[in-house]
């Protein structure tokens, strides 16, 4: 398997009040977007610790999106601003450890932003494609093989 054939994975942490609802709406609207994204629900992006981002990369994620409410309309006033600070810090750590900082990105999406959300996922998928799989991407045994009898 050449490195570019490797299956890539994007982890998207989505706030219940905005991006998670937008992802749901994207589904209702039947918007097409990259299927390698795995969404993790969070009560607020402010809940997310730097450690989770690093853990995702350590385990083999090729890109991580942190999707919170638009600035100024966080359900918890400023959770998204705190998340932005943590994401920026984690990006520095990534760069220092030799991973491209672009693999981690904070985006802001309102609950109505289905298209915006799918756009961000697509953009991250393109970034990952351009950079290639993360060096930490261990070839997963794909679920498909696993679920085959």
């Amino acid at each position: 398997m050449s490195s570019s054939d490797k299956e890539t994975t994007i982890v998207a942490f989505c706030c219940i009040y905005c991006a998670y609802a937008a992802a749901d709406l994207a589904g209702s609207m039947r918007l097409q977007y990259p299927s390698n994204v795995r969404i993790i629900r969070t009560p607020c992006t402010g809940r997310l610790e730097v450690e989770y981002f690093l853990r995702a990369f350590e385990n083999g994620a090729d890109g991580v999106l942190v999707a919170g409410c638009e600035e100024g309309s966080c359900h918890f006033k400023e959770g998204n601003l705190i998340a932005k600070r943590r994401v920026n810090y984690a990006r520095k750590l990534l760069a220092e450890s030799g991973l491209e900082a672009e693999r981690l990105k904070m985006v802001n999406v309102s609950a109505a932003g289905a298209r915006l959300f799918t756009g961000h996922v697509r953009e991250m998928a393109e970034t990952v494609q351009r950079l290639g799989p993360s060096p930490l991407n261990r070839a997963k045994t794909r679920v498909q093989q696993e679920i085959k009898p």
Partner: peptide
């Protein structure tokens, strides 16, 4: 925290 971490581990757990 452990719930988030386990989700991240499970996602990348290889079948073996």
């Amino acid at each position: 925290s452990r719930q988030f971490k386990d989700m991240l581990d499970e996602l990348f757990r290889s079948g073996k």
